[in-house]
Design a protein around this nucleic acid. Structure first.
Lengths: 247, 247
DNA sequence: CGTACGCTTGACTCGTGTCAAAGCCAGTGG
DNA sequence: CCACTGGCTTTGACACGAGTCAAGCGTACG
């Protein structure tokens, strides 16, 4: 895979730099990483709990999620990934996967071999630190979701989730003027928020009725960012973004 | 601080090795880390959200937790730490803390300067990897808690939490024969499980009535491990322990 | 044009939260 | 040595958020 102007590597670098800057040499090293690009349909597992992968996944287009199932088959989504994210970066250091990763929409993904990643990490400690940092931000998002699901009501919870989507998508240039494409079902939003599909539907209607969101097909518009932020008790601190993308 | 036979450093090393082994040289390097030991009362903040610490905390005795508050002041505990854990290890790479850490009981803690940790990480990449791994296990626990809080009922949820306590305490030698000391209140268990104090009380009574747990003061005994595991849908995979401490 | 999937609705149930009062202890001080 | 006290646990009554079930609706796609 040759690294072009909008190559997978560039996307990864941009993402890493949204948290902490890298030197030119380090960027060059990342540019040189071999990436194997594939397109996947929606609702497909990329890796499954119990797997011992030898490569990491880099999301290039679309949405993926991390999920687990309870004994009765109820699904909880723990994280949603946007382009630039590495959904199973943890597998670089934890041999057995403790969660599954699935596509939520049509996706383009790149695979990078662990050995290649390890090589650049060894040679460039700052790159290792950058990847480490990325997994730490993931953990921070888990914590915020725990607060969201454990202590907030469904209405606030959904507002918060939509705030997070907007900020993270803006950070990778996939949202303009508070508008973004969210081609995921209400059932999936329910799995993100720990609620039922029916209740998600009711909550979305309430948010629409209160003028906090507008929807048109799979597109979502947030007409009054400040108000949704307030309703969702949203403070972007936990995303640890460098520049204040969360205005 | 001199490193004695049961020094803070030994505890940290044992914890790191419960996930992945270290070489003698690496252990020596960790032994040399200066640690400043202090005793803290219960219910005291060690660090607060928004802080920019210049040191990491190493828990030596007692229990600490990571928590956040909602706008209305509801508290969610995201993680409980047992001796050997480093509750704010993330601060090594994320400058601003996105959560608070507090003691849940009388605690002995050690503080290690970031600069000292960075020095050993740079010199011994395997130590950096070990610390990284530890933060990845923390993240894995967050994911399991998300499943627990998002998709399980309070009864199952509490059983799961108690299973986790037992396994993690056994791993550091603080539980024998399914018995351990848990000097934390039902209000704190409520904050861990995202439920109310009253409900925690009812759930604990139900668990007792079903012979799944026994309590005596602050001590908890699990008479039938297999049965509690089943009720709590507990699979220790997510703790990523090396030896199978979770029999 | 039909079929399937996702969205919407209403009725009913149920798990949990809330409130408020009482009980239980352990530690304190007279 | 024993009341006093404050924090934690326990109880009951009631309210409410959210789940479940089941049916109907819309619409994109073959």
């Amino acid at each position: 895979m040759v690294a072009g102007p909008h190559s997978p590597q560039i996307l990864m670098i941009r993402k890493l730099e949204s948290i902490f800057p890298l030197s030119e040499e380090e960027k060059q090293a990342l540019q040189g990483l071999p990436v194997h690009v594939t397109v996947l349909q929606a609702d497909q597992d990329i890796v499954r709990i119990g797997d011992r992968p030898s490569q990491c996944c880099l999301l290039l287009e679309g949405y993926t999620c991390v999920y687990k199932l309870t004994a009765e088959g109820k699904r909880q989504i723990m994280a949603v990934h946007v382009p630039g994210d590495m959904p199973d970066l943890q597998s670089l250091h934890l041999t057995v996967l403790d969660n599954s990763v699935a596509t939520m929409s049509l996706c383009t993904v790149g695979f990078i071999q662990h050995e290649d990643l390890r090589r650049v990490c060894e040679r460039y400690p700052q790159i290792a630190a950058a990847f480490w940092r990325e997994t730490l931000v993931d953990a921070s998002i888990f914590r915020e979701w725990l607060l969201n699901i454990g202590r907030r009501e469904a209405y606030t919870r959904m507002a918060h989730l939509l705030c997070e989507f907007l900020v993270r998508l803006k950070a990778v240039g996939l949202a303009q003027d508070g508008t973004f494409d969210l081609p995921i079902t209400q059932a999936e939003l329910a799995d993100c928020t720990g609620t039922s599909t029916v209740h998600v539907n009711r909550v979305l209607q309430a948010l629409r009725a209160n003028g906090l969101i507008q929807t048109k097909g799979t597109w979502v518009t947030i007409p009054d960012w400040e108000r949704l932020k307030e309703v969702g008790e949203f403070d972007p601190l936990y995303l640890h973004l460098r520049e204040d993308e969360a205005t």
